[in-house]
């Protein structure tokens, strides 16, 4: 039986793995290869080797778009992590039987349509939108504030769209936290704030890191939110890739940008893995300490 199992399991996995290879691995490898070719005179691809496209990625003009994207994605990540952690903390502190319900309803919007969730913010933020109406209702009579098509609108849209994942990622370690650790810390005279900072926070770093990576990676490669809520005024890497493929018709450069995006993603994932490893060390220490 045992010797029979591997071949049967390979057979079961084969169709899916073939699909993933043909329609994910090969196309991605192709894009990587494309990044080393030249753009043809009429927008096609000229098959001669070059590193120009990667050089262009580092060109000050494009490097500034990268930095800008990183700043917007970083701000969205920071805000989403703060709100998401607080929400996850409140859910983990709720009565046990309510926790799955709260969790379900905090993640539900995440699985509904991304475009619609972004559109909802146009409805809220436009000059005659709900927020302006509310201000008027409170007696505001001046010019309607311009909130849409600003960097703040882009950040708000990103936070709104990716918050559920942070809640989910932070809830996992928070719900597994041993309450005795916090009690021990208080018994030893630590304030609530110190207990949080020195005991709870370090033990929940893996959740924060996972949530942060997710928001950052998805934000930096986004093109829908900057296009809709930024009114096209805030170029992010995603918009740049979009333009190279669909309007500028410079596929090799677009491919190099896509690869830069993947490189950033891998870098951030590695950082997360390191943070998780260090936190695992702390958890082991905390457990060892508790046993003494």
């Amino acid at each position: 039986m045992r010797s029979f199992v591997p071949s049967r399991s390979s057979l079961l996995m084969a169709p899916a793995l073939a699909w993933l290879t043909a329609l994910m691995v090969v196309p991605c490898a192709l894009v990587l290869a494309l990044a080393f070719f030249r753009r043809g005179i009429y927008g096609g691809i000229e098959y001669s080797f070059t590193l120009e496209n990667f050089g262009l990625v580092l060109d000050p003009l494009y490097a500034s778009i990268f930095l800008n994207s990183a700043r917007i994605a970083g701000a969205a990540t920071l805000i989403a992590v703060v709100i998401g952690y607080a929400a996850a903390y409140a859910i983990a502190a709720a009565p046990r039987r309510w926790q799955p319900v709260f969790l379900f309803f905090s993640v539900l919007p995440f699985w509904s349509n991304y475009l619609i969730r972004t559109y909802a913010w146009i409805v809220l933020l436009n000059r005659e939108g709900l927020i302006t109406q509310l201000l008027r209702w409170f007696g505001y009579t001046g010019e309607p504030p311009s909130m849409l098509y600003t960097e703040g609108a882009v950040i708000a849209g990103l936070v709104y769209n990716y918050l559920p994942f942070v809640i989910l990622a932070c809830y996992a370690p928070l719900s597994r936290l041993n309450p005795e650790l916090a009690e021990a810390s208080r018994d030893l005279g630590a304030s609530a704030m110190t207990t949080f900072r020195r005991v709870i926070l370090p033990l929940t770093v893996p959740g924060i890191a996972a949530g942060a990576v997710f928001v950052f990676v998805l934000s930096i490669g986004n093109f829908v939110t900057p296009a809709l809520l930024g009114g096209g005024r805030f170029q992010m890497i995603g918009n740049l890739v979009y333009d190279q493929f669909l309007t500028a018709n410079d596929w090799p450069f677009g491919a190099a940008l896509a690869m830069a995006l993947i490189a950033i993603m891998l870098l951030v994932l590695t950082a997360q893995a390191l943070a998780a490893d260090r936190a695992a060390g702390r958890v082991a220490e905390a457990k060892g300490g508790a046993d003494d």
């Binding site: 196309p27 991605c28 192709l30 894009v31 990676v217 998805l218 979009y242 493929f245 491919a255 993603m265």
Partner: peptide, 18 residues
């Protein structure tokens, strides 16, 4: 795991090229 974390735009341009 890759299809779940790869940025949509990357898979999109990869498939378009392919």
């Amino acid at each position: 795991f890759a299809p779940m974390i790869i940025p949509d735009i990357v898979l999109a341009v990869a498939l378009l090229s392919f």
